[in-house]
Design a binder for these strands. Structure first.
Lengths: 359, 359
DNA sequence: TTGTAAGCGTTATCAC
DNA sequence: GTGATAACGCTTACAA
């Protein structure tokens, strides 16, 4: 077996000595200068079809792949996309990663992940250092990190392109991908009203979160439409955690006239409310309807399966990549560039919603 | 000219012209050669305390940070750690990312994430291309990807250090971090037996997964210890998905004499079994005890909360980083280097386990 | 122990 | 259109 040699020496196109061929090898073989090869690599317009073809043939023949480290040094820019997040929800982050990877898989880009601590007072310094060191082509900001304007300004300042992902538009269109949380929540609540629910509880997200505000506004808008005026006790504050759902559920379901339905600002809290209902022997959905938001794995794993709202995460990730680095992606991908940057979330009906008792 | 600058021109230690200071600036200021500065950066042993101090002062004064791109080119190696995974479980992947980041946060390393498709026949080529291009310092392989010996061989071949994370040792100690799945499962089942359970069902993981095999062996070992001999119908095959749990639950709970407890090889399947129980009006844990594995978010979100097994993911991640790149981490971190590379999983008792009916 | 010269593999400048 | 030549910022020989 020829496999005796050490290191990567197989596969087509290793240059002499078992090393990767360099731009020099290509230039020599094609009988042109390295700059010309460079032009071919970088798709310069000023090239004869003939030379381009010659060079491309040599590249092909040698199996030449430009060295990203050298390019990074010369370009003063790394062929990376940075994903900055504050771990909002594991599934969301991972789905997003997948989407981005799908979008860039045929390019030379790679994905650099950076979890940060939103609360830290060194946040900006951390991110600055990170971006200055890694010099990515662009950065993606996931919610709720994306709501931080200073972070966006920092990217701008450092010359790093960026896209913010969120529940509503919060920047120039070219820097923002958002969903229509408000509208889809209103739609879900309208459904509840149509089923006959009149006493509907709401579990808010944490203060200061754009997503929380948007969802609440959607909820209130639907109530107003229906001419419903609910007591303040029907509005519970949460922090997107399961335990907050437990607390909210305890409060809501201990009321003398409890709600017949509860809209929760995310699935985790909805799971908490559902647990409380089970504990109290309240039938879901017969006696209590519950709706969540996120369509997390939890939504399908709990019983009964939770009706919820699905963010088009992967689509958002793909669009974000297209917006961020169109020139690095396939022409096909680029073509999608002029679509809207507001992507629609959808209501997912499952088993946790039914008409109120007595209807 | 200084006013004209675009981009980062503030902060301490920008060199002349608003640019980042380079090794040359440091050398000039310290009155030494760039090589000496380089030695300081790379912690060479052959240096006078005095020169080192001088250089370090200059570095400090200038706020000099070595350019990673240039280092990568010269070193022929990028200061990155690659995380290769096949999306086993979002929470697991993310927790692992966090652990790695924690371990490397004070170093110059960054984390490159690469989800791959385990089933693809281009897997090896994909990974090879990825590693050849990115040239990371090292790679981490998450299960079940870590079970692929070819992948490990590829890393070896490419001179990329690697660590495999898994349910049992599957390589040299220096390349492997594992948990003790078999033992902890046996322990959990012993607990069931101690409570009085005699008819215990088992939901397997998918064929070909090391984790699935380990867990099953632990289960069988505990049965043997207790002198229990269960019918074949008590063993259901699953694929780690919720729907497989549903199917297994349907099968197990429709038996003429159904089990009084079920051990599921992961939480998702346990959630499926639990849903079936709820649907059939079987009380959990009163009439049926259920145990899962993973301690995923689902385990706490379902009702009743699931007793399960917790992998020490973050610890594994940290250990993996320490094993992979000790020379890049703090001396403190290095010190931990000679500990065991088998980390203990723990059984987490929650509300889904109780004595069987009639005890 | 420290310095000099020659890369590492690419792109930018500016002639031709 | 194309090609010398000098960056890019750092490291590895090899001297001194």
């Amino acid at each position: 077996m020829a496999a005796q040699d050490k290191g990567p020496s197989r596969g087509p196109g290793r240059g002499p000595g078992g090393k990767q061929p360099t731009i020099n090898d290509v230039a020599a073989l094609a009988g042109v200068s390295k700059k010309t090869v460079s032009r071919v690599i970088n798709r310069s317009e000023f090239l004869t079809e003939k030379t381009r073809a010659t060079v491309e043939k040599a590249i092909e023949q040698l199996g030449f792949v430009p060295n990203p480290q050298a390019r990074a040094l010369a370009f003063r820019r790394n062929f990376l996309i940075a994903l900055l997040h504050d771990n909002p929800n594991a599934q969301t982050v991972l789905n997003f990663q997948r989407g981005v990877l799908d979008a860039i898989k045929d390019s030379d880009l790679a994905l650099l992940v950076r979890p940060v601590d939103r609360g830290s007072d060194k946040l900006l310094d951390d991110v600055r250092t990170f971006l200055e060191k890694q010099r990515p082509i662009g950065a993606m900001l996931l919610p709720p990190l994306s709501e931080n304007d200073d972070l966006a300004a920092l990217c701008e300042d450092l010359g790093v392109r960026y896209v913010r992902i969120g529940s509503a538009r919060m920047d120039d269109a070219k820097h923002c991908i958002s969903s229509n949380d408000r509208e889809v929540v209103a739609e879900a609540v309208r459904g509840l009203v149509a089923l006959g629910h009149r006493r509907i509880g709401f579990v808010r997200g944490p203060a200061g979160f754009r997503s929380a505000a948007e969802r609440e506004e959607g909820f209130r808008a639907a109530l107003a439409e229906a001419g419903l005026d609910l007591p303040a006790e029907f509005f519970a504050r949460g922090n997107y955690r399961y335990t907050a759902g437990i607390e909210a559920g305890e409060a809501l379901l201990s009321l003398s006239t409890p709600p017949t339905a509860v809209f929760c600002s995310n699935d985790e809290m909805a799971a908490g409310v559902m647990s409380v209902a089970h504990g109290k022997g309240i039938k879901v959905p017969g006696e209590l309807s519950i709706i969540g938001f996120d369509d997390s794995p939890t939504a399908t794993h709990i019983w009964p399966a939770l009706s919820t709202v699905r963010w088009p995460i992967r689509e958002m990730a793909i669009r974000a990549a297209q917006m961020l680095v169109p020139d690095f992606l396939d022409p096909g991908a680029k073509a999608a560039g002029d679509e809207s940057n507001v992507l629609a979330s959808t209501f997912v009906a499952r088993q946790s919603v039914a008409p109120p008792p007595g209807r």
